[in-house]
Structures are given as C-alpha cells and as structure tokens.
C-alpha cells in the first residue's frame, strides 16, 4: 500500500530551485533517508511532503495521516509536558498514548514538568514523543537527531523501527547519520 508518493516533484526557496524531478514511493514499512549538507532543501522537501508548501512542479500523494517533526517543538511552554502533549493527542484522538510515548522517549519522569523548564534535548525528545503519540502512518522527521544524545538517538531509531514494523512509512531528513535499516537514500 502506497503511503507517500512524490511524482516528479520540484521544490524551491524563493526563486532558487533546490531539487527537481524527484520521484519516490513509500509504502508500508518503508523508510527514506534524505541527506545532504545544510541549505540544500531537506526541510523544504519535508514541508512539501507534509503539505505545508506546494511543490513548484509535480505532485505529492499522501495515503494517510501525517505526523511531522520540525525544528519547532509546537508545545505550549507554560504547560506541564503531559498536558502540552495531551493537547495534540486530544486532536489526534490518541490521548491514551501520551504516557507510552513519553516512556518510549525516556522522559516519563518529566511528565509534570513545565515545557519551559526542559533542556533543549529534553524538548526535542518531547517533540518526538508527540510524533510517537500521534499514531499516524506517515512520519516526516526533519533533523530528528538535533540535540539528542546517543541514548536518545537509539530510542528514536527504536521508535522508527516500531513504526515501520507497524505498517507505517518514515521519511527522515538529516545531515547526520541515522540508522535506518533497508532505507532508501536520496542525497540532495
């Protein structure tokens, strides 16, 4: 089953073309690693895949709900972590998955800590927990390893493997290595 399809997609920032005629198809259990140095268009590709930006050319087809990890955590800084995640989980109809998502990222003990009190790395793990809790079949992860220590990176890789094993598809854009067994690779 096809979950995310790029058909001859071109992306641009302003008038500068970043990539052109990019085609791929991600089905259940698939993963795609988009790699390249800073500024080549990885985030633009993720935003096009998420439907936040229109492609300059070509078409994007999504076969299910999307969970997006971007640079911004999108968590209310004044709220305790569990409530900040609960807002999104409530919208996703997955409020009962918050505790498990926090545990999966190793931050279950921080559930009652206000988001503004979290370190950069903890906030990043919280944002990943938001993705995990969403239970969406398509994960789009933009630089997910930023701010993560080695143990947290392993937790992220385990979460990605679980999502793939559960029938999801994962697109990771990263300028640092992320272990994605049997993933296709696109270099921009």
């Amino acid at each position: 089953m096809s979950l995310l399809t790029f058909d001859r997609v071109s992306g641009a920032r302003g008038r500068r073309t970043l990539f052109a005629d990019l085609s791929f198809d991600l089905g259940t259990g698939d993963a795609l690693l988009v790699q390249g140095p800073n500024g080549v268009g990885k985030s633009t590709l993720v935003r096009i895949a998420a439907g936040l930006l229109p492609p300059v050319d070509g078409s994007v087809t999504r076969g299910g709900a999307v969970a997006l990890l971007s640079e911004a955590a999108a968590l209310d800084p004044q709220l305790p972590l569990t409530k900040a995640l609960g807002f999104w989980a409530g919208l996703d109809g997955a409020r009962d998955r918050v505790d498990a998502a926090l545990a999966a990222m190793g931050i279950g003990s921080l559930a009652e800590v206000p988001v503004r009190m979290l370190s950069t790395g903890q906030r990043r793990r919280a944002a990943i927990a938001r993705v995990v809790a969403a239970d969406a079949p398509i994960w789009l992860l933009d630089e997910p390893a930023n701010g993560l220590d080695a143990a947290s990176l392993e937790r992220l890789e385990a979460a990605i493997a679980t999502r793939r094993a559960g029938g999801g598809a994962v697109l990771v854009a990263s300028h640092v290595p992320v272990a994605l067994p049997d993933a296709r690779v696109v270099t921009l």
């Binding site: 997006l68 971007s70 911004a72 955590a73 999104w88 919208l91």
Partner: peptide, 12 residues
Amino acid sequence: VDSGVVDQLVVR
C-alpha cells in the same frame, strides 16, 4: 507561527 503550532494544525 514561530513555535510551529500553526504548521502542526495544518498538517492535521
């Protein structure tokens, strides 16, 4: 907009 909340809502 800055914190990504609008992006997350649009994705949903």
